[in-house]
């Protein structure tokens, strides 16, 4: 598996995408912190959308809001945030492919992110079937809470792993 990511990094290294990303990061004044802020605002949109839906499913937040309505109103924010974060994150990944693709913490991030997206999409599709889809039986109520807890954990760990990419040596070469 690691070999796949290394091959990908080698393919990016020295190419036009890398040149473009490096040019933007080095030449546009303030570009790195600005694009990182876009990335964190994307995370804020994830917190305000799918994480709030998960907290609602767990019965912890927004008691006056209905899940069906929340899903139709908030989930587009998640899809746009994911797009924005793929682009903003892409600048850094294409500029320094080995820093990410040859880094176990980045792979951990993907290992949290991809299931988080898949689970959120699945829960979203099910939530749109009917207003009471998650509350009809006791089994469904339990399932919805477990799915929400797992989704919440995956999103939090994605953000956590993302921040630790820069600190891989703390984890893999402890003092």
């Amino acid at each position: 598996m690691d070999a796949v990511f290394l091959t990908l990094a080698e393919a990016i290294d020295g190419g036009a995408l890398q040149a473009g990303a490096l040019w933007a990061l080095r030449s546009i004044p303030g570009f790195p912190p600005i694009i990182q802020t876009v990335h964190i605002l994307g995370i804020a949109a994830i917190m305000g959308s799918v994480v709030m839906i998960n907290l609602r499913m767990l019965g912890l937040a927004l008691p006056s809001q209905q899940l069906f309505e929340m899903n139709t109103r908030l989930m587009p924010w998640l899809w746009w945030a994911l797009l924005a974060n793929a682009v903003s994150g892409g600048f850094f990944l294409f500029a320094r492919p080995f820093r990410y693709l040859d880094n176990p913490v980045f792979l951990w991030k993907l290992a949290f992110l991809l299931p988080a997206i898949a689970l959120s999409f699945l829960v979203y599709r099910i939530s749109l079937r009917s207003e009471d889809i998650w509350s009809r039986t006791a089994a469904r109520r339990i399932t919805s809470k477990l799915a929400a807890l797992l989704s919440l954990g995956l999103w939090i760990m994605t953000a956590m792993a993302g921040r630790w990419i820069a600190y891989a040596e703390y984890l893999y070469y402890p003092a």
Binding site: I40, L41, I43, A44, A45, I46, M47, G48, S49, V51, M52, I156, A159, M160, R163, W164, A166, Y167, Y170, L171, P174
Partner: peptide, 24 residues
Amino acid sequence: TSWFPFLESIHVIAAALLVGAIAT
């Protein structure tokens, strides 16, 4: 120690939750 990156990652998550919530 690893406390720094740990606090930093919690800080980012809390800040994102704060902004995501207040933006609503």
